[in-house]
Simulated assay, not measured.
Amino acid sequence: MTASAQFTLEDQADGAARLVLSGRLIVSTLTSVESKLRAVDAASVVDISGLEEVDTVGAWIVYRLSRDLDAPIEGASPEAERLIEAVKDTPDDTQTVPPEEPLATKVPAEVGTAVLGGISGTQQALSFLGAVVLAIFRVIRHPSRLRMTALVRQLQLVGVDALFIIGMMSFLVGIVIAQQGAVQLQQFGAEIYTINLTGRLALRELGVLMTAIMVAGRSGSAFAAQIGTMKLTEEVDAMRTIGVDPMEALVLPRVIACVVMLTLLGFYSSVISIIGGAVLGQLALGIPFITFLSRIKEVVPVLDLWVGLIKGPVFGLIIGMTGCYQGMKVEGNSEEVGLRTTKAVVEGIFMVIVLDAFFAVFFSKIGWL
């Protein structure tokens, strides 16, 4: 049996060409011959008596050749005839692109879909928050349910392992604050107030905010990826089967670790930022390092420290819950892990910035300036 389809053009006595097809004209053998058949521009007859096998795709090729060349088909077997008759009524100009929906209906439909999706997402997030609160109450009533090993492990991953990168980032941010502030203040001969600017910004805003953004990108994404992978491998379902609550075993240690460590890391970041500003003051402004640090105690109110410390656990709670929530929402395939991890980072950073703006307005209204 011939492995693939073949064709030849045979000259006839009247000078016209006869297109002769042979072999197996089926979908698996068309690759090598279809483009050559498209190049045939003239034939008086399409002879398919030499075809050993033909399927629907092959019958469509034969019919299209006959139609385009305006040549009759000869030598068709009964099976080939039935297939050719079946494909004759099939249009070849079927529209593959759906018609464009009018703008007047498309925009409201997309807005409605987005609103309904937002409402559904909010309900699910509140449900997740309720589950976390219930898990906290259960642990308070029965402290032995708290998995200390998992908690200590998460404290290390979220906090201890992040000390170097957060310290480096904070040091450089402190240098940038001091340098940019000094450039502007020098115009008024007030570069000494660079100390005030660096200390208040570091303790009140940038220390905890930059730390929260770093933790959201580092730990929030890790939470989503870890729990999401466990969802795909059905480890979470297995935990429920053996009577282990995933909220207590997986979510609670991560959330608590974020709340505790972000508070400490925020303070650590603020201190390192001030040290960075002091280094720049020593090198570029002629302000002695010790003088810089001593003046921080005089010009920066303790209230700024408390403002930063209040923000820390709130930001940690949001980041931890967002990462765990997105991880628990993973289902389907491994691509979903990447999508949910991205959403965990984006939503975590967005919520942190929104809350920071809220805190700025709130503290201003109550006079904590």
Rank of each mutant, 00 (worst) to 15 (best):
S77Y: 01
Q12L: 14
C324G: 08
A3Q: 13
F137K: 11
W368I: 03
V314I: 15
E205M: 07
L37S: 05
I287R: 03
G320I: 09
M169L: 15
I318V: 15
K297Q: 15
G220C: 01
T105I: 12
P108L: 03
D41H: 11
Q184R: 12
I353G: 06
F363S: 00
P143D: 02
R145S: 13
D237L: 10
A216R: 05
G50I: 05
E85F: 06
G23V: 09
G181K: 06
V132N: 08
I213K: 06
M1H: 12
L293D: 08
S269Y: 05
I318N: 06
P78A: 11
I175K: 04
A357K: 06
K231E: 03
F362E: 05
Q186C: 00
G323E: 07
L303K: 14
G23C: 03
V260Q: 03
G228P: 02
E100T: 14
T233W: 03
I48N: 01
A59W: 04
I353Q: 01
L209G: 02
T194L: 01
I272G: 09
T322R: 01
L83P: 06
V251W: 08
G286L: 04
V244D: 12
F128W: 04
I353E: 02
G23Q: 11
S77M: 07
F350R: 01
A17D: 13
S32C: 01
F350D: 07
F164N: 09
I48G: 00
G316K: 08
V307C: 10
E235M: 12
M148V: 14
S28P: 04
G167V: 05
I84F: 07
Q184Y: 12
I318T: 15
T233L: 11
T96I: 13
V271W: 12
L305W: 14
F358V: 13
S144E: 14
Q326S: 05
Q282N: 11
G50A: 01
V132Y: 12
D89I: 05
F223W: 01
T90S: 12
T96N: 10
L197V: 11
K106V: 00
G199M: 07
G15F: 12
S44G: 08
A278Y: 05
K329Q: 15
I242W: 08
V152S: 10
L37M: 05
G320C: 07
L197T: 00
K88L: 07
I119D: 08
A13F: 11
T56F: 08
E234M: 10
K231V: 00
H142G: 04
A125R: 06
V337C: 05
G75N: 02
S270E: 08
E85W: 08
Q187W: 03
E85D: 14
R218M: 03
Y325I: 05
A131G: 15
G348Y: 00
W368H: 04
A42V: 01
L203V: 08
I48D: 03
G277F: 07
V158F: 03
I310T: 11
I366Y: 07
K231D: 04
I242H: 07
L9N: 08
F188W: 08
T2V: 10
M328E: 02
F267L: 15
R295N: 15
Q95I: 11
A182M: 06
